[in-house]
Simulated assay, not measured.
Amino acid sequence: MKPAEAALAAAKIIGSQAEMARLLDVKPPTVSQWCSGERPIPAARAVQIETLTQGQIKRESLCPGFPWASAAA
């Protein structure tokens, strides 16, 4: 799953892109850009989105370029 697809799936689970923006305290266009693949999802936001989706969408799917394995160590 590409990051944009993961972001779209997360927004659907949360309720909407607008709701995801509200819960993350970011502007709706930011979430829209994540969902379109226009803008990368920051690692910190990926962790928050994973929490908001109760682990249904994994941080690794949202931000695959981040070294998650070494960050957990």
Score class of each variant (00 low, 15 high):
A69K: 15
W34A: 01
A46R: 00
A73C: 11
P40A: 09
P42I: 06
R22I: 08
E38P: 06
A46P: 04
P67W: 06
C63K: 07
F66R: 11
E50M: 11
S16E: 05
Q48G: 05
E19V: 05
I49L: 03
A6C: 03
V47E: 14
A73M: 08
D25V: 09
S16I: 09
A18W: 13
P64V: 08
M20T: 00
I41P: 02
L52F: 13
P64R: 02
R39N: 10
D25I: 09
T53W: 04
Q54L: 07
E19P: 06
V31T: 12
V26A: 03
M20Y: 05
A43H: 13
K27E: 14
A9Y: 08
P28Y: 13
P28G: 05
A71L: 11
G37K: 06
A10F: 10
Q17Y: 11
L52Q: 04
P3V: 01
W34H: 03
I13K: 07
I13C: 00
P42Y: 15
V31R: 12
T30P: 01
V26I: 10
V31Y: 02
E19G: 04
A71V: 10
K2C: 07
S61M: 11
A4N: 07
D25H: 14
V31L: 14
L52G: 06
I49R: 01
A43I: 12
P40D: 09
E5Q: 15
R45G: 08
K27N: 13
E5T: 10
C63R: 09
I14E: 02
K58S: 11
G37H: 08
Q54S: 08
V47T: 02
S16K: 11
C35E: 11
A73R: 11
K27Y: 15
C35N: 08
W34T: 03
A4H: 13
A4V: 04
A11P: 02
Q17M: 09
Q56C: 02
L62M: 03
W34F: 00
S61N: 10
L23A: 09
D25W: 11
I41H: 00
K27I: 11
